[in-house]
Computed example of a mutant assay.
Amino acid sequence: MREKAIPIHTLPQRPMKLRKWTVEAIVAILLIVWLHTSVSKLMDFGGLQIQMRQSPVFYKNANLAAIVGPSLEILLSILLIIKRTRVVGLFGSFLLMVFFTWYVAYLMVTMPHLPCSCGGIVGWLNWSQHLALNIFLTIISLIGFFLQRKYLKMGKP
């Protein structure tokens, strides 16, 4: 005996709502991180430039890196706020966090005593805590990207 198919519109909406709220929570976390660190870096721009000059990766382009870093974080914040560009903001957040995670791991190996050039409270973390935070933010950015993309495929903004 065949079971009768249940129309999609009568299925519980709980998974879709959970997906939506999960994405909203991820976006909120990323917004707090991006806005907090970018504003902190810009408020101490001279200090940021000095720390970038000490970096084995950025020392040749310290001034450019000091401008590009906070600018990217602000751009990602704007992309995350606008629902139509959120999926791009989530993927961009993932890519930037992959880079930041690699950078922290690289510094842990090559220059563990170098001060962190991250702004705000993130700069207070030791390198191991910073790496753990970056891995967490990388993972949630990727999860948010896939959930938002799936949500968009379902025809939701």
Rank of each mutant, 00 (worst) to 15 (best):
F100A: 13
Q51W: 08
L75C: 04
M52N: 10
T85V: 01
A66C: 06
V39G: 04
W21A: 09
V109P: 02
S55C: 08
K60H: 05
K60T: 09
N61K: 00
V33F: 07
L30M: 03
L76Q: 08
M97I: 09
K60P: 02
L96S: 07
I26N: 02
G47E: 13
I67F: 00
R19Q: 15
T110V: 14
V104N: 15
G69P: 00
R14W: 15
P12Y: 06
S93F: 00
R14T: 14
I26H: 01
L75F: 03
R14V: 13
M108T: 12
L76Y: 06
L76A: 10
L64A: 02
G89P: 00
F99G: 10
M43G: 09
T37F: 12
Q51L: 12
V33A: 11
L11E: 07
M108A: 14
K17E: 15
V88M: 03
F91W: 01
L75D: 03
N63V: 09
F94T: 14
V98T: 06
K17S: 08
K20W: 04
E3T: 13
Y59D: 06
R84H: 06
R19M: 15
V23S: 15
L48D: 03
P56G: 11
I26Q: 03
L114T: 08
Y106Q: 05
V39E: 04
K20S: 08
Q51F: 07
M97P: 04
Y59V: 09
Q54H: 10
L114G: 07
F45S: 14
L79Q: 02
M111Y: 11
I74T: 04
L42E: 01
I81V: 14
L64K: 01
R53A: 13
M52P: 09
E73Y: 00
E3F: 14
P56K: 11
S71W: 06
A25F: 01
R53C: 10
F91A: 01
G46S: 07
G46K: 04
V87K: 09
L75G: 05
S40A: 13
M52Y: 07
M52Q: 09
R14D: 15
K83F: 03
V87P: 09
S93M: 00
Q13Y: 12
